[in-house]
Design a binder for these strands. Structure first.
Lengths: 212, 212, 212, 212
DNA sequence: CATGAATGAGTATTCATTCAT
DNA sequence: AATGAATGAATACTCATTCAT
């Protein structure tokens, strides 16, 4: 029997905490795309901020567009552990989780002085239908988000009026979040986000009352 | 309150139907910014599609950024006559007007095979806080939109539970519209838009029932 | 009646002898492509040697490839006045003209210390079939060359054996010239060129003898 | 005369039919240089098509230029066995061998849909005098070619008029071949090649007649 | 010998803007 | 106002080569 190769993740020697070139490129791109948008971010800026030189980028990615899709894939991977898990950890109550999730986004926009919005929403609007591969990944991110929330609402099914569709409700939560984040960023204020979320909470309250 | 500047129609002699150079620049810019975004649209493309040459653009506008603010001012001018007026013409019922307005956006996105979103929302997300003049105009567009809808809801005040804030409700309508348009564009489908609007309609129904 | 516009060739003010930007680009490109080949010539070198800056090149030409086709068109224009006319001026004898033409190429390669070959032949071999537009122009240059020589030989028809095809003979003159120029450049010597031309001259002598 | 270096077949253990890394690099380079030219061929393309990685290339060759000279040496090695031998095998008649050789080139260009020319001629024109080492090898290839043909014609000496120089005649055969291949490639047709070869054959016929 | 990441100067081209006419 | 050439920094990307493992 052949001895199993130790299967190291690429490079043999990297100090603990250091990030590989590829990872640094993705993280830096993600941050810059979020701050400035895709088109406003020059490859040379990514290179400078990641401390990578031009040739290396193209060793790992065919071009800027694949950096974009790489970032969107990375967001998809992070959605569960980074976005949904904390909301699930906060409470067992399905509806509580929905508003914990919205709280996560509230903290996110507040924490950057309104400089950033929803990474997916930003790219969704900036790129439109012009980059099919990116659009497909945007769609998958939205799907995964909706699936997770719909899953929670499914559990709370009997608390809503008969015939209430948990998935449609999840979509409504998503539109509220995206619209709220957009307005908060434009107005540089949490007020519109809070107003929208409060109305959504009111809706859930009325739904639960109507069910009983 | 600022006095409205008496917008003069520039040159005296122009054949009926012809558009001035300035107007052609604004219209073309508006279309291209909507289709592709601000950064993805090159000045040379605007020039070519408007049939204007470089020197002329800079005669009318100091630079590309003023083209952007010009477009946003133009949207602000159009909001009343082009967006709100049709909804008001459709029905006298305030809540009916809200959903007529949402119908207007539904038709707008359907009519372009999902190629375009909300012009203001797109620019809001793409530009973030990087262009203060533009951001201020985005904000004024959102304000004017919210004001108009809040005005309608004010009229219907007694149909909602005591203490319901018409402006907060208007913000909620706006977040639903923006979120719905975003998802429709990303998914290339009216389904998420329709789902969100249906939930909003349900909320209004529950509100009206709760009021009585 | 409208007064006829003076139809100036582009720019109003240019000192006598000065060349337009477009002309400078074509001349510089022609020279560099001849010295180094198409691929070995960088756009930045053309720019520097022509004293033109990047933007201006792309104002006149869509790209490097159109610079190439521009050069080939320019050669086609020059073929009559610069290449054929001197040979025709030298003698009225058709066969004499053929060898006057070959003498022109002899002087051309000798005059550059073997640094340059036939501009068309060089590009023909370097580009092969990869650039269809350029290849078509190479072909037209060869056609025009062959036509001119065939025209001369036509006049001398009765000096050759019955059935001798003047065009095939012209092609043979061209292959001899191109092959001779190639060998002269590779060997850095006129010897192979002279040897080939001497054999060709011998062939013509034998043809004329065989006719009588 | 230089002693021939005893070219060792490098490593002892290689499965029959497998090619060494070095051989794969040379073959791939030869093919790509022929198809696209030297400058248009990127080292990374050679690497990819040969299935070799960057470090290995530079283990065998100091740089791209030595790949070029390696290819030209390889052509020189092949000239006898691959190019001349078949013509010699076809017939014992010296003049017959000349036209058998030209037939070999005819088949060569026809067999590639005019995509390739004479490997040596292509490089001769593309590189000019810029790469001394390569130019010297181009020259040696042409010399060897001419020597071989001159050797045949030497044997047929008494069939030509007294004083006919076999070497000059061999050069003429070479210019006809190179010119013919060039025109065939440019015109994407065998017609000019055939026309030139037919004239050359006619010349040989007249020479032989004049001798008797 | 092989691997593949790293290097950074170089490529062709586009950008928004300015200028002289 | 209009024209279109000029400007030159910036764009995304490729090049041949080197290096550590």
């Amino acid at each position: 029997m052949e001895p199993v190769k130790p299967r190291r993740e690429r490079p043999a020697s990297r100090a603990k905490g250091e990030r590989s070139t590829r990872e640094r490129l993705l993280e830096t791109s993600a941050r810059l795309f979020l701050d400035q948008g895709y088109h406003a971010t020059g490859v040379s800026t990514i290179l400078a901020e990641a401390g990578v030189n031009a040739g290396s980028l193209y060793h790992f990615f065919p071009g800027k567009e694949e950096l974009l899709t790489g970032v969107l894939e990375w967001y998809l991977d992070q959605l569960g552990p980074v976005v949904m898990a904390p909301a699930e950890a906060r409470t067992r109550d399905p509806v509580g989780r929905v508003f914990a999730l919205l709280d996560f986004y509230r903290a996110w926009i507040a924490g950057s002085d309104f400089g950033r919005g929803c990474p997916i929403g930003n790219l969704a609007l900036e790129l439109g239908t012009a980059y099919p591969a990116a659009r497909a990944l945007v769609e998958r991110n939205f799907e995964a988000w909706t699936d997770a929330v719909a899953g929670w609402l499914e559990e709370a099914r009997e608390r809503f009026p008969r015939g209430t569709d948990p998935r449609a409700l999840a979509v409504f939560v998503l539109t509220t979040m995206e619209g709220g984040v957009m307005l908060a960023r434009a107005r540089r204020s949490l007020e519109p986000f809070d107003a929208a979320v409060a109305r959504l909470r009111d809706y859930f309250r009325l739904l639960e009352r109507a069910a009983s």
